Amino acid sequence: MSQNENNAHPQSWKTAYRSFYYADAPEPSPPPLDPATTALLVIDVQNTYRDRPDPQTLSPPERARYDAWTPFHARFENVLVPNIRALLKHCRDLGIECMFARIAALKRDGRDRSLSQKLPGWNNILLPHRDTPSQVVPELAPLEDEIVVTKTTDSAVTGTNLRLLLDNMGIRTVICVGVFTDQCVSSTVRSLADESFHVVVVEDCCAAGTDALHHRELEIINNIYCNVMASDELRALIDAKSATARG
């Protein structure tokens, strides 16, 4: 059995995605999931990640690259967006704060972006913040009173006033979902953990460029920076906490 198969759900979140460091650690306790002090943060699920060229117009090397990205786009459309949509509804119904972070440039030429967003290569992405490609996908559109922070860095904490907003609202646990697992999601998770928030990452509400990168990053950040679990496991824990609070 491969490492990814061994780590993937339906194993319990308490035993899945264990790294070398936590191979012999005791099972973790459930994170605090009081709806009053918990927020759901949707990271970078934006229109730009749906943009694809017409494959018939591509050269052979370009077509090979196109094909290499096809599994990501399939996961984005068939797993990520539907699962986040369902989780948003569940959290909204329970009064859990729902928030959004999107990567975008405040200046049209992008000179306000962090160095990691300017270096040559795939990560050099220019998304003016008013343009359609930088907006959250329509299926997950924020409601009128939901906060959207715009970041020019990978981390939604480093690049915005998110930490202050969470503190002001009394949030202590942040549920993170979105793209890319090994980049902006991971960077945000690490920043939140360093700021002493409890963090949950929802495995089937995240995606990386490849399935291998996705699973590897979850193994790296689990237990030390967050608890990784599937959306059905998370909903069960939230519902149990809500039932207990109602008495």
Rank of each mutant, 00 (worst) to 15 (best):
M229A: 06
D34N: 15
L234I: 00
L140Q: 08
V177S: 10
P10F: 00
Q135V: 04
A104Y: 01
C205L: 09
A193S: 15
Q56W: 08
G121S: 11
L213H: 07
E146R: 06
L106E: 00
P31E: 13
N123G: 10
G110T: 15
C226E: 03
D112V: 04
C98W: 07
S186Y: 03
L115I: 11
A156K: 00
S196M: 06
T132Q: 05
I220W: 04
D54H: 13
L88V: 15
E62Y: 12
D44F: 02
G209A: 09
R163G: 02
P53K: 15
T57K: 14
G159M: 02
E219V: 10
A156W: 00
R163Q: 08
E5S: 09
N227R: 05
W122N: 15
S19R: 08
R65W: 10
E195V: 02
T57C: 05
V201Y: 03
S2A: 05
P133T: 02
N124K: 12
P120M: 10
K151D: 04
P142V: 06
A212E: 13
N4L: 14
L40Y: 00
C176F: 01
E217S: 12
V136S: 07
Y49L: 12
G170W: 11
T153E: 03
T244Q: 14
I103P: 00
F180N: 02
P138Y: 08
P55E: 04
I43Y: 08
L115K: 03
G110P: 15
L164I: 13
R92A: 08
P26T: 06
V189L: 05
S196T: 04
P26L: 06
G110Q: 15
L127F: 05
R163A: 11
L41C: 08
S19A: 12
Q3C: 01
V199A: 10
A104T: 00
D93S: 14
P138V: 13
H90V: 10
K89W: 08
T15K: 07
L192W: 05
Y66W: 09
L213A: 12
I147W: 08
L115Q: 06
V199S: 07
A39C: 13
K151Y: 01
I175M: 06
C176H: 01
D232I: 02
S242D: 12
D145G: 03
P53I: 07
G178L: 09
A212H: 12
N4P: 04
I220C: 04
C206P: 06
S2C: 07
Q46V: 15
Q183P: 01
G170P: 01
T181S: 11
H129E: 05
G178D: 08
Q183S: 04
A25E: 11
W69D: 04
R92Q: 05
G209T: 09
I220L: 11
P120L: 10
Y17K: 13
K89M: 12
F180D: 01
R113W: 01
V45T: 14
Y17R: 15
A39R: 10
Y66G: 01
V157T: 10
L88Q: 14
P30Q: 07
D167Q: 08
E219M: 06
A16K: 11
A101Q: 13
D154A: 05
L127D: 04
N78Q: 12
D44W: 02
M229L: 13
C184K: 01
S2Y: 03
L33F: 03
S191K: 02
S2Q: 06
A207V: 13
S231A: 15
K118E: 00
